[in-house]
Amino acid sequence: MSIWEYANPLKFMGWTAPLVPVLSVLAAVALSVGLIWGYFFTPDDYRMGASVKIIYIHVPSAMMAINAWAMMLVASLIWIVRRHHVSALAAKAAAPIGMVMTVIALITGAIWGQPMWGTWWAWDPRLTSFLILFLFYIGYMAMWAAIENPDTAADLTSVLCLVGSVFAILSRYAVNFWNQGLHQGASLSMDAEENVADVFWVPLLVAIAGFVLLFVALVLVRTRTEIRARRLHAIVARERMG
């Protein structure tokens, strides 16, 4: 049996049903632990004070904003190549979540930036890139909403996602070129010297795990909803055929 068997809508509904509550509970636990630990049991930063603690929301949401788009790209490619309906629906389901993550990253960034840089918004490359990413999400979702035939919508949004990904990367570099920014370097990287201190690091990892679990759980729930909607659509269409 090939792995693609699991992509059959009925099978998918079957194996994801028990997964959703498990993932939801895990996400709730990881988020609670990460956030409570991060907020109440870590010292203030010597430079940034208590405002540094927004990192526990800002960094994971920013990561998920990008990862959600990457997941949509992979799902779109699978739809184009193998034409698994669930894949297209998963991409559709992930878009609003990614968009909300982008908004959270932008808002928490503004709240963090205000005391740090003295301004709510700066045309810093990272901030600008996220704003552009937000526009891409809006366009992608508008495209899904505008087209009635679900297969046509899946095809066109997949093409848009592919081209959009290329242009999102181009925009990222263009924006870097356009303005060298205020934003601090990446909070997480393989290079240890760049990393935030260990005290902040462990709860941050837990919070990130929480966001990932939350994202997966939400995508599953939304994909299941989309599958049910499609099923309803199919039943109604069949009734009409007689």
Binding site: I132, G139, A142, M143, G164, Y173, A174
Partner: peptide
């Protein structure tokens, strides 16, 4: 809405 973000670079 689709084209303007693509014009950025």
């Amino acid at each position: 809405l689709l084209v303007l973000p693509l014009y950025v670079p």
